[in-house]
Amino acid sequence: MAKYQKPVLFYQGNCGNDAARVALVSVSVESALLGYGVEIYHKVLSQLEKKYNCSLYDCYKHPECLNEILKTLPRNSRYKITQSIRNGLEEFSYVKPVSKFLDTLDS
């Protein structure tokens, strides 16, 4: 019987390349925003660019920027988008940077 092994994608050793995690988080955020509506998607991207000079890809390392933009949305919208992001990343929450990203969204 094969022993359970974490996916290589999330290797926690000396591998400094976290491009796969950046892409995973970015796609989850993008999907959640688009799931709520194209207008919200464009509004969030525009605000990220305008306020923080960053994109969705930068949100992985700076989730506080996304969190601040989401706080400007109506409470119900913010909750649904955050919940959708959390659902999309739930199975990867054992990875410390992903867990930190999710915790920052909840603050």
Rank of each mutant, 00 (worst) to 15 (best):
Leu105Ile: 10
Leu48Phe: 05
Val27Lys: 09
Thr82Gly: 03
Tyr94Leu: 06
Ser28Met: 10
Arg78Ala: 15
Asn67Val: 05
Gln5Gly: 00
Arg21Lys: 15
Val27Arg: 11
Gly37Cys: 05
Tyr52Glu: 13
Asp58Ser: 10
Val95Thr: 09
Ala20His: 04
Tyr60Ile: 10
Asn14Trp: 03
Ser55Pro: 00
Ser107Asn: 13
Asp58Lys: 09
Lys100Thr: 15
Lys61Cys: 03
Gln83Cys: 07
Ser99Gly: 03
Arg21Phe: 00
Asn53Tyr: 00
Leu34Arg: 15
Phe10Ile: 15
Asn87Val: 05
Cys15Gln: 13
Tyr36Trp: 12
Asn53His: 08
Leu102Asn: 06
Val44Pro: 07
Gln5Asp: 08
Ser26Arg: 12
Thr72Glu: 14
Asn76Cys: 00
Val29Ile: 15
Ala2Arg: 07
Tyr57Ser: 06
Phe92Trp: 10
Asp106Gln: 15
Lys61Trp: 03
Ser46Thr: 14
Leu105His: 04
Leu73Gly: 01
Arg78Val: 06
Ala2Trp: 01
Cys59Ile: 12
Lys80Ile: 13
Leu33His: 05
Asp58Ile: 03
Gln12Arg: 11
Gln47Trp: 04
Lys6Ser: 11
Phe101His: 09
Lys100His: 11
Leu45Phe: 00
Ser26Gln: 14
Leu89Pro: 06
Leu24Trp: 02
His62Met: 11
Gln47Leu: 14
Val98Cys: 01
Ser55Cys: 05
Val95Pro: 00
Ser107Lys: 11
Val22Glu: 09
Val8Ile: 10
Lys96Trp: 00
Lys71Ser: 13
Ser28Lys: 09
Tyr94Val: 08
Ser84Phe: 01
Tyr4Asp: 09
Ala20Trp: 02
Phe92Lys: 09
Ile40Ala: 10
Tyr94Met: 04
Ala32Gly: 09
Val27Pro: 01
Lys61Pro: 00
Leu33Ile: 12
Lys61Val: 04
Leu89Ile: 14
Leu45Trp: 02
Tyr11Phe: 09
Asn87Leu: 12
Phe10Asp: 11
Lys50Asn: 06
Tyr57Glu: 14
Val29Asp: 08
Arg78Asn: 12
Arg75Asn: 07
